[in-house]
Amino acid sequence: MPDDKLIVCRCEEVTLDEIKKAVKDGASTVSGIKKRTRACMGMCQGRVCQSLVKKVLAHESGNQADSIETATSRSPVRPIQLGEII
């Protein structure tokens, strides 16, 4: 399967290839992937793709997927309007 075509993060349209490249670039955490690619940073905040990003990180580093730490959840955990918090 061509990795450059397979979209992993649907919200931000990040491909498997881009995530692998980010790992080669030195990313070793979900946070590192987020900062390099914007995967997990769209509307769903990683509800869909975070487990996939973890699998790629684990595979590329030769670890188990559950050894990769989950990205820190921060409020607001749902999309809200600015007017609701100020």
Partner: peptide, 10 residues
């Protein structure tokens, strides 16, 4: 649900 991507899943 956990996502299960396939080429063309969008």
């Amino acid at each position: 649900e956990r996502a299960m991507p396939v080429e063309g899943w969008t």
